[in-house]
């Protein structure tokens, strides 16, 4: 099976800093890593390849330096790395990003499955995966926690929901976005690292993939960031302790005192 995994470079920290003037993420001076959720996507791609044969290609859009990060994926079993890099791609929102990725993927040729992480840890939008599927006109499933079966032209997977999971069948090719429950990403191997060192990352420009520059980067991005802030959580939670019986009693008393229910 030919599997394409989309990855994104994100700042390697939990404390993402925002430039207050442009409202964009400050990337200078912060170590860049592969978006952690994309690591699960890569691992799942490599596992499918190990079972069914074929190859795994990672694709990303970003500055030329991202090529170094893409190389590292070779050490965990990826076969090819492709980077879309062009000034025309700069400043892209999720719409322009998914457009560029879709054009890049079309330029790569035949594929069976595209895997993305559920979201990136910097922007947290979770939009690029589904948007990419729409651009390619293929089905998608988000938050996949397990692939139950995959074969020629068919996939059945479990989609994580708030209170359990759904089982979804789709024809292939398709896009899935994965959650961390799906696997435990492997560590690189020394032989893989040595192979990675020798691997060339293929760099493609907007012209190479035949992309319309008006739909790329800042030009192709209708999103304008006006303000970035962490929403305030006004929910006050109180944990009730004790045995189940004691907890029930205390909860009932609480609800009575707050007049959410009446004593009979």
């Amino acid at each position: 099976m030919n599997i394409i995994v989309c990855v994104k470079q994100v700042p390697g920290t939990n404390e993402v800093k925002i430039n207050k003037e442009t409202n964009t993420i400050i990337r200078e001076g912060v170590e860049a890593i592969i978006n952690p959720f994309d690591e699960y996507a890569i691992e799942e791609g490599v596992r499918i390849k190990e079972k069914t044969g074929g190859k795994v290609t990672v694709i990303s859009m970003g500055i030329p330096k991202v090529a170094d990060l893409l190389k590292e994926t070779i050490a965990v079993g990826v076969d090819e790395a492709v980077l879309l890099s062009d000034r025309a791609f700069a400043g892209a929102d999720t719409l322009a990003t998914s457009y560029a990725l879709s054009m890049g993927i079309k330029a790569l040729g035949e594929y069976d499955l595209i895997i993305c992480g559920k979201q990136a840890t910097d922007g947290d939008t979770a939009q690029v995966g589904p948007s990419l599927a729409e651009k390619l006109n293929i089905p998608h499933t988000t938050y996949v926690r397990k692939i139950e079966e995959i074969k020629d032209g068919y996939i059945r997977c479990q989609r994580l929901t708030d209170d359990g999971y759904e089982v979804i069948e789709m024809p292939l090719p398709a896009v899935i976005t994965v959650v961390k429950e799906i696997n435990e990403p492997r560590l690189p191997s020394i032989k893989g690292k040595l192979k990675a060192k020798k691997t060339e990352v293929k760099i493609l420009t907007a012209d190479d993939i035949g992309a319309d520059k008006d739909r790329c980067g800042l030009k192709g991005s209708p999103t304008q960031v006006i303000k970035t802030f962490v929403p305030e959580h006004n929910v006050v939670a109180e944990m009730i302790e004790g045995t189940a019986e004691e907890q029930a009693k205390k909860l009932a008393q609480k609800l009575l005192s707050m007049q959410f229910m009446k004593a009979r």
Binding site: L187, S189, I190
Partner: peptide
Amino acid sequence: KYLADSDL
């Protein structure tokens, strides 16, 4: 197993 998979 981790050491083995990493070629160490």
